[in-house]
Simulated scan of single mutants.
Amino acid sequence: MTAVDLQHGSATDVGHVRAVNEDSFLTAPPVFVVADGMGGHAGGDVASAMVVAELGKLGDALLEPRAAARSVLAALERCQVRLREYAEGQGHRGPSIHAGTTVVVAMLVRDEDGTRWLLANLGDSRVYGLGPGGLDQVSVDHSVVQELVDAGRITAEQAQHHPERHVITRALSAADVPEPDFFLVPLDAAHRLLLCTDGINAMIDDVDIERILRRCPDPGQAAAELVQAALDAGGRDNATAVVVDVVGLAENDDDSHRAASDETNQGALP
């Protein structure tokens, strides 16, 4: 197996407004997950905990990218079944539309091209990559304002203050398992990953996120400072950050010699 040395850290906080922390996260190399539950006492915390539990069953073997993507889809489908059973157990005649969760996943995969990151997302939780070219938002928000930006109807700056900026267009719920987006990223193009809920990036901008990630060499300290910065900016939501560093690659790993300018590949891997 290709030797890849990872270091990671995490932090979460309920914030200054919410009564319940509906965020959940997983740090179980080679799998990392952040989920932002929706529904409050109707089960948002339950939904995020369920998806983290199911993705935590993926194990520690490095799969090839398509097999890994299929395993992520299977875990999301298992979680949907569990959410449906939970909703029925709470007395709902049909699936509860109130309990759901966003999810972002990062896992190491390996094929003939070497070891890479497979990233997946549903909703508006994000994955950022910090590499030689700076900070890059790899995931694409599944949100109303992102669709408006893509259509050219508003600017990215206007999206930050749009009244519907928290309305998402895809999420995992008891009623549905939408198709996540998948991305393949070379390790040397993102030597540091950040997985976070919108309680981070809605409170502090990407410039401050990059500044903190560059200032803090320890991933645990970086995660804690990101959460603290979100709290200092108002803490209007639960805030969760997972930071993962690639600190070592085997000399014979072809991927370690690929140019950092390689394009990120996005596609329906399954």
Results as ranks from 00 to 15, higher is better:
residue 184 L to W: 05
residue 184 L to P: 09
residue 173 S to G: 11
residue 242 V to S: 00
residue 125 S to L: 05
residue 134 G to T: 01
residue 247 V to F: 01
residue 157 E to H: 03
residue 209 I to P: 02
residue 170 R to G: 02
residue 236 R to I: 03
residue 175 A to M: 13
residue 244 V to L: 03
residue 204 I to S: 13
residue 191 H to Y: 14
residue 248 G to Q: 07
residue 181 D to E: 10
residue 225 E to V: 11
residue 187 L to I: 04
residue 145 V to T: 12
residue 195 L to Q: 06
residue 147 E to P: 03
residue 220 G to E: 09
residue 217 P to Q: 10
residue 176 D to A: 15
residue 138 V to K: 08
residue 249 L to N: 10
residue 155 T to K: 05
residue 162 H to Y: 00
residue 196 C to F: 02
residue 190 A to F: 08
residue 167 V to E: 11
residue 189 A to P: 09
residue 226 L to P: 00
residue 135 L to K: 08
residue 183 F to N: 07
residue 142 H to Q: 04
residue 203 M to D: 06
residue 153 R to A: 14
residue 209 I to Q: 01
residue 148 L to F: 13
residue 164 E to N: 10
residue 191 H to A: 15
residue 202 A to K: 15
residue 216 C to Q: 15
residue 239 A to H: 01
residue 172 L to Y: 11
residue 218 D to R: 09
residue 223 A to G: 00
residue 217 P to D: 14
residue 227 V to A: 05
residue 211 R to P: 13
residue 140 V to K: 14
residue 173 S to F: 10
residue 221 Q to G: 10
residue 209 I to R: 02
residue 236 R to S: 04
residue 165 R to Y: 03
residue 198 D to L: 05
residue 229 A to Q: 11
residue 245 D to I: 10
residue 216 C to N: 14
residue 169 T to Q: 10
residue 128 Y to D: 01
residue 218 D to L: 10
residue 179 E to W: 13
residue 143 S to G: 10
residue 170 R to T: 02
residue 134 G to C: 01
residue 142 H to Y: 02
residue 222 A to S: 06
residue 233 A to D: 02
residue 169 T to F: 09
residue 215 R to C: 12
residue 200 I to V: 14
residue 180 P to L: 11
residue 163 P to I: 11
residue 156 A to K: 11
residue 131 G to Y: 03
residue 231 L to S: 05
residue 189 A to Y: 03
residue 206 D to G: 12
residue 162 H to N: 00
residue 216 C to S: 15
residue 245 D to T: 11
residue 163 P to S: 03
residue 169 T to V: 09
residue 197 T to V: 10
residue 138 V to A: 04
